[in-house]
């Protein structure tokens, strides 16, 4: 390739960093909405990897996979926000530590 382009590894490192940030957000944030957003961040990190790999292989498959992931993420968001809403209606809180009523 004569044209200078961003190397594959940069994309992969960025994707790994985003994914790790998502994991950290999921584990350490206490607001349910923020936790949910962290999961979305993880999925988008994966999408970035798919696109980068797809470009590397000169295939269109990886691009198509990102659409599947986006659709699934949208479906998950619809169901997830509905669940979060019912939790909020019943408990009037969005702190994850307050949603812990079952022990033995």
């Amino acid at each position: 390739m004569t044209m200078t382009s961003v190397p594959l590894s940069w994309y992969l490192i960025l994707s790994a960093v985003l994914f790790t940030l998502g994991v950290a957000g999921f584990l350490f944030r206490r607001n349910i909405i923020t936790v949910f957003m962290s999961i979305e961040l993880m999925l988008n990190a994966v999408n970035l990897s798919f696109v980068a790999f797809s470009y590397q292989w000169r295939q269109v498959d990886g691009h198509v996979y990102t659409f599947f992931v986006m659709v699934v993420a949208a479906a998950e968001a619809a169901v997830g926000l509905a669940i979060i809403l019912t939790v909020f209606k019943n408990r009037a809180t969005l702190q994850i530590d307050d949603v812990d009523s079952m022990k033995n």
């Binding site: 999921f26 999961i39 999925l43 994966v46 990897s49 998950e76 169901v79 949603v99």
Partner: peptide, 26 residues
């Protein structure tokens, strides 16, 4: 509600790992 919330959050979290593995295999 609580069951659904926990199942949903942890389930999507785990699925993201699965998908990241798929991306690397690809």
């Amino acid at each position: 509600n609580e069951a659904a919330l926990k199942y949903f959050l942890l389930g999507s979290f785990a699925t993201a790992f699965l998908l990241y593995g798929v991306a690397w295999i690809y």
